[in-house]
């Protein structure tokens, strides 16, 4: 089977520091691939290359078997790659609808932005994702962490993402909201999306992911199916940088 998305032998350096060094990962349709590692292991950098925020020094990216060049977030969006950032890339001063459609506003026949239609669409998708969401017209700065996260997720879902990148999607959330995100990931998986998930929480990753890739100091230590490894195996890979069989 052709992977939905594949990053092959990716490297990038910042001022002599090799932040990502020859890493290859891929995701299949309906699969969740976790990226684990310490702070500074290169997970976010790797994923930002896929989402167009950084440009790789070398390496290749394939989407559904086709070689693609991604040099800007716009490119990434063209290949239906949507990203939900750790820092919640929302403009705080705008309302949920404006954020959801940011960069892809709906316009009327005169070319003016059609706020009413965007609001109606936002209400529709929010009713599906998070029925309690009511603050459609308020600036997102007035929203809770979970509500903001659901705006970010709604953005990815609305535009029919095929490949979804989630960078610490539950870091700022409470227990209940984390569960909501977990349910949503299962739902999107069923729809055949490929998801790259970044998190620090090993246990959560083992629950949500099909495979996990561990990185350390910019290098890929290994990729394992979750049913083949224990939490301790993963932890030793993160900390010692060795695969379980080597560690023994």
């Amino acid at each position: 089977m052709t992977p939905l998305c594949e990053m092959r032998d990716i490297s990038i350096a910042f001022g002599g520091v090799r932040a990502v060094d020859g890493v290859s990962i891929h995701v299949n349709p309906g699969e969740v691939v976790g990226l684990l590692g310490h702070n500074g292991a290169g997970k976010s950098t790797l994923i930002k290359i896929l989402s167009g925020a950084y440009k790789a020094d070398s390496g290749e990216i394939y989407v559904e078997g086709q070689r693609v060049t991604i040099t800007s977030p716009r490119d990434a969006r063209r290949y239906n790659i949507e990203t939900i950032y750790q820092t919640l890339a929302l403009a705080d001063n705008l309302d949920a609808a404006s954020n959801l459609f940011l960069g892809r506003e709906l316009t009327n026949w005169m070319g003016f932005v059609d706020d009413d239609r965007m609001e109606a669409e936002t209400r529709k998708i929010m009713a599906r994702l998070n029925p309690n969401f009511r603050k459609i017209k308020e600036p997102v700065s007035a929203l809770s962490g979970g509500q903001r996260q659901s705006v970010a997720i709604a953005r990815a879902v609305y535009f029919n993402a095929k490949i979804l990148i989630m960078d610490e999607p539950t870091a700022a959330l409470g227990v209940h909201e984390t569960q909501m995100v977990a349910d949503l990931i299962q739902e999107l998986k069923k729809q055949g999306l490929g998801i790259f998930l970044i998190s620090h929480d090993t246990r959560e990753m083992l629950e949500l992911c099909d495979r996990v890739s561990v990185m350390k100091n910019g290098r890929l230590i290994g990729t394992e199916r979750v049913e083949d490894v224990t939490e301790d195996d993963i932890l030793s890979m993160i900390i010692m940088g060795k695969k379980p069989d080597q560690a023994a």
Partner: peptide, 20 residues
């Protein structure tokens, strides 16, 4: 759109950039 982008960039330049 120009106006929307002006305000979005003012609110969060990084978010605006990441939105293309």
């Amino acid at each position: 759109r120009l106006g929307r982008y002006i305000f979005a960039t003012g609110g969060n330049p990084d978010a605006a950039e990441l939105s293309g």
